[in-house]
């Protein structure tokens, strides 16, 4: 039983990271109807920035905040320069754009910081949490930061004018424009926020997977799985999906024989495909009807 509780808690901790990635993916999907395949690489790059800041002597939380600011501005810049001109282009062109971004960020991170694996500090320490053997302080910290982030986002979208404007721009762009919302900038803002959320996920998971240019590959696939499970059109669903996928991953690894670390990615693949086949709109997504 202790093993079971332990795995559930560990699942919630990694699930928190998947929830952040899924949320970032869904925010961009809502804004422009495209999946950001470079989301993981953007997060990885932000994490490297924070690492670099710490190397020159900035304390952890200072580096954390500076990195968020950098990621936010970086996300907006990417949207303005690279993806705004592609708004009306066919899907293929957009997919190609994301793939190009993926390759550029991955390769330049390798060029700047090289491909060796680096240690990344955790501000929470890794001793047992509250004297319990079930969960470490870093895992508890991951869950805590994610919950704070989710609450902040909830209040932003529910109770501020800006949040309302962003929701309007995402769900009915044309009507939003008619009432005077600058939808184009709302999309850029969505990119900035998604990029910052990804950066948080990157900085929280880096002590676990270690810092290197390919660190987010597996995390992104699980983030996609979470987003698909929750429904690509529902931010709430993405978060729920993230936690579910995290728990599922840990339980499958523990209790299904033959499924170890080496099968992590195939499990995510199987999960994505089975959700898409059984319930393409996901648990909380809305069903889109296509017309000619």
């Amino acid at each position: 039983m202790e093993l079971f509780t332990n795995q559930i808690l560990a699942g919630i901790a990694t699930g928190a990271i998947y929830a952040c990635m899924a949320l970032a993916v869904v925010m961009i999907y809502q804004a422009i109807d495209h999946l950001n395949f470079a989301q993981g690489e953007m997060a990885m790059f932000s994490t490297f920035i924070s690492w670099q800041l710490m190397q020159v002597g900035v304390p952890y939380w200072g580096a954390f905040v500076l990195t968020l600011v950098f990621s936010f501005i970086g996300g907006i810049a990417i949207e303005r320069i690279l993806f705004k001109p592609l708004t009306k282009a066919p899907i293929l062109t957009n997919v190609a754009g994301f793939i190009a971004l993926f390759a550029i960020i991955n390769s330049s991170a390798g060029l700047i910081w090289d491909f060796t694996i680096k240690q990344y500090p955790t501000p929470f320490g890794s001793s047992p949490f509250l004297g319990s053997q079930l969960i470490s302080t870093h895992q508890a910290g991951m869950i805590g930061v994610t919950v704070l982030l989710l609450l902040a986002l909830y209040f932003f979208f529910q109770y501020t004018r800006m949040g309302l404007a962003m929701r309007a721009a995402a769900s009915l762009p044309e009507s939003a424009r008619l009432v005077g919302i600058n939808t184009s900038w709302m999309i850029a803002l969505g990119w900035g926020m998604a990029s910052a959320i990804g950066a948080i996920a990157g900085m929280l998971i880096a002590p676990v997977v270690f810092l290197e240019p390919n660190m987010m590959g597996g995390v992104l696939i699980y983030g996609f799985a979470a987003a698909v499970l929750g429904g690509l059109t529902s931010p709430f669903g993405a978060v729920v999906g993230g936690f579910l996928v995290g728990i599922f991953e840990n339980l499958a690894g523990t209790y299904i024989p033959g499924v170890g670390n080496e099968l992590k990615l195939p499990i995510a693949l199987a999960l994505i495909i089975s959700v898409l086949v059984v319930k393409p709109a996901g648990l909380f997504g809305r069903h889109i009807v296509k017309r000619v």
């Binding site: 190609a96 793939i99 971004l101 390759a103 550029i104 390769s107 330049s108 090289d114």
Partner: peptide, 14 residues
Amino acid sequence: SKGLSGAVFGVLLF
């Protein structure tokens, strides 16, 4: 430069 091919690919693709 080693490791540059990804960046070159990406830039050319854009």
